[in-house]
Every structure is written in structure tokens, then in C-alpha cells.
Amino acid sequence: MISVKTTQLTKKFGSFTAVDAVDLEVYKGEIFGFLGANGAGKSTMIRMLCGLLMPSSGEALIDGLDIYKESELIKKRIGYMSQKFSLYNDLTVAENIEFYGGVYSLDKKLIRSKKEEIAVSLNLKEEMKRLTRDVPVGLKQRLALACAMLHDPKIIFLDEPTSGVDPKVRKDFWNIIYDLSEHGKTVFVTTHFMEEAEYCHRLSIMQDGRIIALDSPENMKAIHNEKTIQDVFIKLIKRQNNDEI
């Protein structure tokens, strides 16, 4: 089942084309990775799919909904977490959860049960009453994800969710991503960590607004005859750069 589909999706900022006629089909329950250099168009792509940016041209369907006409409905079905974690550091952990619950107009009972659920799964007790700025970064990361998932979205966009955390915390975080996928959620991820790229079901490598490679990590490595995605990535990007020169 197709979860996200784009046809010739394009975004221009003035004369600069950030995303250039991208065709994409991502399936329900898939973990789909966006790789690329800074400024290659990953973030722009994700921001369009989330409704943060209007495309310049092209089509996109999110869970069957049109990105132009049904953006309000789309917002209820997607979750978004950025590398900034988007939590209010001067609010307590509980207040953050309550706030995001309120923004999605969940009723009080549901917010309360979600709060308990999060407290159990993140193993939080007294931390609930602590200011968010005082909790460790790994916990903050999982809390940010929990807040982005309060309204039980079908599709989740994770924009560099693991930047700035250590290898153990990153690996734990990927366990959560696998779990989401198992529960039928479609997960979009961008990352600069190439070992994480290997964890994705399918990967796309972007450069200059275009997808220059799209496949499963295993196939990608086999096709380019490299041991790691890191090597594939460097090979592809460097080749592209050389072509341009």
C-alpha cells in the first residue's frame, strides 16, 4: 500500500531549485532514508511533505490526501520531529506533553493516559516534574519523538533525529523506529550517520535537488560493489561532482 507518492515534485527559491522534479513512492510501514550533503534538498523535501513548505510545482499525495487541497487533514495524520527536538526547555516534561496534547486537541483523559504511557516506556518518574532543559539529551530525544507521536500519526518524518547523541542512544532510538514500522507507521528519516543508513528499508541519495540513487541498502552496496553505504555515498557524490567539473 502506497503511503506517500510524489510526481515531479519541485521547489524553487528564486532562481535556486532546491528540489527538482522528484518522483517517489513510499509504502506503508517502510523506513525510508534520505541521504545527501548539506543543502542537497533532503530537508526541503521533508518540509514539503509535512506541509511546512508549498511546492512550486508537481503533485504529492500523503496517505492519499492531496498536499495542496487537504493540508489540514494531512496535519492530523503526520508527525514531525526535527534535530532541534522542538521541546520547550523552560517547561517541565509533563507540561510539554500536556501542551502538545492540547495543540492536537486531544481530550484530557487521553492526554493523561498518554502521559502515563510515556512515563512507563521512557522509565520516567520524578523526571516528569523536572524542567526539560535538565534532562539528559537521550531522554530529550525520545521525549521529542513521543510528543510528535501523541496524536497517533500514520506517517512520521524524522529530520536528523539522532544528531548530537552518542552511538548507544542512537541505536536505542533505532529500536523505536523499527517498532513504529512494525506497527504499520511509515517512517521518513534523514541522517548523516552512514551506519544508520544501513538500518533503513530503502534509501535515497539526493544531490542538487534530485534523487541520484534509490534502493535498499543491500542492493545499493551490491550494485556499486562497495562494503558500506558510506563508501557508496562518497563514490556517488564524488562522481557527480567530477561530472560537473
Partner: peptide, 13 residues
Amino acid sequence: ENGTLEQLLVSPL
């Protein structure tokens, strides 16, 4: 500045 506005914009707010 903190990027929280972005988080609110992807919500139905």
C-alpha cells in the same frame, strides 16, 4: 528562533 514554531506549524494549530 528555537524551532518550536515549526513543530506547531506541522500540527493542526
